[in-house]
Every structure is written in C-alpha cells, then in structure tokens.
C-alpha cells in the first residue's frame, strides 16, 4: 500500500513538472528560453514519472524498460534542443 502512495506522489509531481514546462513554453518570449523550459522540465518530469512507475512495477525487466525510456528520451531531447537552438542561431530569425 505504501508503495502505491509513493507511485502516486512521484507521478503527480512529475506531471506538475510537465505542466510547468508547458506553461513556460507558452509564456517564455523566444525559441531559446522556450527550449530551456522544455528540456529541463521534461527531464525531471519524465524521470519522476518513470521512477514512480518503476516502484509500481517492481520487476527487473519493467525497471530496465523504464530506465531505457528515460535515458533515451532525455538524450534525444537534449540533442534535438541543441540542434534547434543551433539552427535558430545560424538562421538568425526573429521569434
């Protein structure tokens, strides 16, 4: 029962990070600041959700799967953020 509460707490907090990241995406003024909001909030948000689900699953394969999901997602997120930021920098466009 206690593990269920841990899962609920972690997933809820993780979702709150996603919500804050989305608010940042909408409110921040330009591409670079928006990328800040996306990469950081998603990293922590997804990490907490995966952690919560790992506790819920409790089996080794399940934990491995969730771990792979988190690592692959944040690596893809940080590289694509870098490429978008770089493209924006070289294009030099406004917005």
């Amino acid at each position: 029962m206690l593990t269920d509460w841990w899962t609920i707490a972690l997933v809820t907090v993780g979702c709150a990070f996603f919500l804050a990241g989305t608010v940042g995406l909408l409110r921040f003024p330009d591409v670079h600041t928006r990328l800040h909001a996306l990469t950081k909030a998603d990293n922590v948000g997804l990490g907490l959700i995966c952690l919560g689900l790992m506790i819920h699953d409790g089996t080794l394969p399940g934990i491995l799967r969730l771990g792979f999901i988190w690592i692959l997602a944040i690596f893809a997120a940080t590289v694509s953020a870098f490429l978008i930021a770089r493209w924006h920098e070289s294009a030099g466009t406004e917005d």
């Binding site: 792979f68 690596f75 893809a76 590289v79 490429l83 770089r86």
Partner: peptide, 15 residues
C-alpha cells in the same frame, strides 16, 4: 556533420 548528431546516431543505432 552537425555536432552531437553522430553521438545520437551511435546511441540510437544499436537500440
């Protein structure tokens, strides 16, 4: 080549 892209490919290819 763009920086970082080869690293992403190296990681994503086996997976």
């Amino acid at each position: 080549p763009m920086p970082m892209l080869p690293s992403l490919l190296a990681m994503i290819t086996p997976v």
